[in-house]
Design a protein around this nucleic acid. Structure first.
Lengths: 254, 254
DNA sequence: GGAACGCTACGGCCTCGGCCGTAGCATCGG
DNA sequence: CCGATGCTACGGCCGAGGCCGTAGCGTTCC
């Protein structure tokens, strides 16, 4: 400590946040929450591989750092990420974790599924997300704008045809559509509240299904047809159904 | 450790990277390198407020994590960030560090200067960066494209007038122009190798000057004129020169 | 009301890792 | 060739913090 000279003003704050993410248990929890769902403390404890008491401590720290928030419901507490910015920051780190030395590339099947199609907080990423992004781009439905991207007239028509009002949340601070760098493909997919609404609609209509215990998702046959109908330029190389990997949902307690 | 159940596949990798950034000394170093320059181990040690031996250890760890790289030159080692992805990830964390509770907002003058104009790795951010971004946008010189943004014909003409070839690095993996979220303004500015070339040209022509010991930069009067001439829609609210803050560049060594 | 359950608070153990001192290796200048 | 300089390697010290056990509070269900 001695003189510590000047120490850049924000270095410490940066470190504070990074330190919170830098513990294996906490990182696992955050990673698990990146699909945008809310999980209970116990589920998160199991995912992180620690006892509930330990998890509780971690969650308290994450709360204090404003990285997560919870909704109390009965005797449960459902934890979720505090906001899209948190997911963005985590994706940024994953880009590094992935290109890093090529040593730690994603192993096997799980990795392949995640690269195909997955959720990124509340919107789609992976080749599915990029397929949607590129389809809109190729058709001239997307234009650069102040906040990132904006829909052209033809783009708005497409969203309205899906039952989504493109100008709905325009009063909000959050951008409607903006690019988000994909850690597996190194290319942008669509984020923003409009992208989130689209994903939401896809789940509602059973065009896309969540896999459990993973952020990977599956494009159903119905969904492929629907998306091809909605986006004329859409093409996505088979993130189709594979046989489900079932896993013991609860650990044997000693 | 006991059973540790399943533990998400990439949680640990994520944690590894975040852990590297999560130490105050290392975070200060990384932060200092975000202006894209290369610094010696000694300079970084001073910035971080630790002894050279300690800094050396930190730098070795950062090297191993592929966050930084160095160029040996005589008896000096010039360290720099390993790539733009690292800067992007750090900016992502700064967004969090900044909106976090409003408790830790940037203090005083330094913060104001940084919000005005600064470098973000190798391109401009702050209101200066956003001014350039918005000017191109407003003039219709920028369009959405596969990798992020692309210049329209009029946009390319503008860059050529500045002596920059817009299609130069098109063979490279790195995008020419893409949006980068600004932590101080919460709006995108331009990143990518073309944005880097532009910044480089601005320094060459003395349109923009670096401040020392900070990522803040100053738009000179000449620069303001030049940018207004180059970008018809450019407007930037006075990131003008302020009286320089001079600081002891080297610590009294006890 | 009582028991089971979800979660958090506190205390003690123990490892991890940041810190500097000393020492050693390379490079540059006279 | 010798000393100064920049940097790294090693070793010992010590504080921070992750871990779980026990305990306590609130909610739910019978």
């Amino acid at each position: 400590m001695a003189h510590h000279a000047i120490m850049s003003t924000q270095g410490p704050y940066l470190a504070e946040i990074a330190h919170l993410m830098g513990d294996p248990a906490r990182a696992s929890m955050l990673h698990a929450l990146m699909d945008g769902r809310a999980l209970t403390a116990k589920e998160l404890a199991w995912i992180a591989g620690v006892a509930p008491q330990t998890a509780s401590g971690h969650l308290a720290k994450l709360m204090q750092g404003n990285l997560i928030a919870f909704a109390a419901q009965g005797r449960h507490r459902y934890y979720r990420l505090a906001g899209p910015e948190v997911a963005t920051a985590l994706e940024g780190l994953m880009v590094l974790a992935n290109l890093d030395g090529a040593s730690r590339r994603l192993p096997s099947r799980v990795g392949a599924e995640l690269s195909q199609a997955r959720t990124c907080y509340d919107h789609f990423a992976g080749r599915l997300g990029i397929g949607i992004h590129d389809a809109l781009m190729a058709g001239g439905h997307l234009a650069a704008s102040e906040g990132g991207y904006a829909l052209t007239a033809s783009g708005k028509a497409i969203f309205r045809a899906l039952g989504l009002e493109p100008d709905a949340g325009s009063k909000s601070r959050r951008a409607a559509l903006r690019p988000c760098l994909d850690w597996s493909e190194r290319r942008p997919h669509l984020a923003g509240h409009l992208a989130a609404s689209l994903a939401c609609r896809c789940f509602e209509m059973d065009w896309v299904r969540r896999r459990k215990d993973s952020r990977a998702v599956i494009l159903t046959e119905k969904g492929r047809g629907a998306l091809e109908a909605a986006f004329p330029e859409f093409r996505c190389d088979a993130p189709g159904p594979v046989n489900p990997v079932v896993r013991e949902p609860v650990p044997a307690p000693a």
